[in-house]
Simulated assay, not measured.
Amino acid sequence: MADAGSIRVLIADDQMMVREGLSVLLGSRPDIEVAGEAADGREAVEAVLALRPDVALLDVRMPVMSGLEATREIVARAPATKVLILTTYDLDEYVYKALKAGAGGFLLKDAPVARLAEGVRAVAAGGALLAPPVTRRLITEFSRLTGEDAALRAPLLERVAGLTERETHVLALVAQGLSNAEIAGHLDLAESTVKTHVGRVLMKLSLRDRTQAVVFAYESGVVAARASAAGTADAGARHRRRRRGG
């Protein structure tokens, strides 16, 4: 029997074998309870409204209503339920649309079982989760901006200007899917300090949660700018080493 404090999950996928497999895998975790299943997006929305699970695990491609459409309805009608998109497709358009729709995470179906369970826990706790290959694709795609796209970013960059250098760095790391603990290790800070920085970023940018922060970071160019700056710094360091003969 599941513990009273278990994370309750709804699994939605149009393939019965996938649903049953995920149900067995997640149900075997002591802190996760499978609250129900759905065979399409419409059933998923109705099940969420009836069962009020902590997390809705949705396949992106389903009949009647897609996972993306279901995400929009769930976020609007049952905001307490977090959405984790699970799919075989790591295409940029799905990642971006899922995050814009309000999904808290995006994992590929070939992810290890432990990673899936971690994803459910992270999203249930209000975190934003992106599979590593998905993060790399987002960074690549959003760095290819035209002049017109750059003009549309101007209002967003004005909001970024209100952040400190440290807060901007934290925002970029949040956008790459890092947890507070991982950001703390990366920046050599206490996890409580990182949590404070994240809270200030959300407040200053008027963002609801980490998922909105991820979308904002890519749309504003914060991630691309950070990646470019890091690349320039690395190139400069390599050049200096060559000149020293190192």
Rank of each mutant, 00 (worst) to 15 (best):
A2L: 09
S6F: 01
I7C: 00
I7W: 00
L10I: 08
D13H: 08
M16V: 14
V18S: 07
L22W: 02
S23L: 03
L25Y: 01
I32G: 01
A35I: 05
A38S: 09
D40H: 15
E46S: 11
V48N: 02
L51I: 13
V55H: 01
L57N: 03
S66W: 03
S66C: 07
G67Y: 03
V75M: 11
R77I: 04
A78V: 03
P79R: 08
A80M: 10
I85P: 02
K97G: 05
A98Y: 04
K100S: 10
A103C: 07
G104S: 04
G105F: 03
L108F: 08
A111K: 06
R115A: 13
R115Q: 13
R115L: 11
L116F: 02
R121I: 00
A122P: 00
V123F: 04
A124K: 04
G126D: 08
G126S: 09
A131T: 02
P133F: 05
L138W: 02
I139M: 13
T140Y: 12
E141T: 15
L145N: 09
A150Y: 12
R153H: 08
L157P: 01
E158P: 01
R159K: 15
E167S: 06
T168M: 11
H169T: 14
A172N: 12
L173K: 03
S179Y: 01
I183M: 05
A184I: 05
H186Q: 14
L189K: 12
A190E: 14
A190K: 14
V194W: 04
R208T: 09
D209S: 09
D209K: 01
T211F: 00
Q212H: 12
A225V: 04
A225W: 10
S228V: 11
A233W: 07
A235S: 11
A235F: 14
A235D: 11
R238Q: 15
R238E: 14
R240D: 13
G245T: 11
G246M: 15
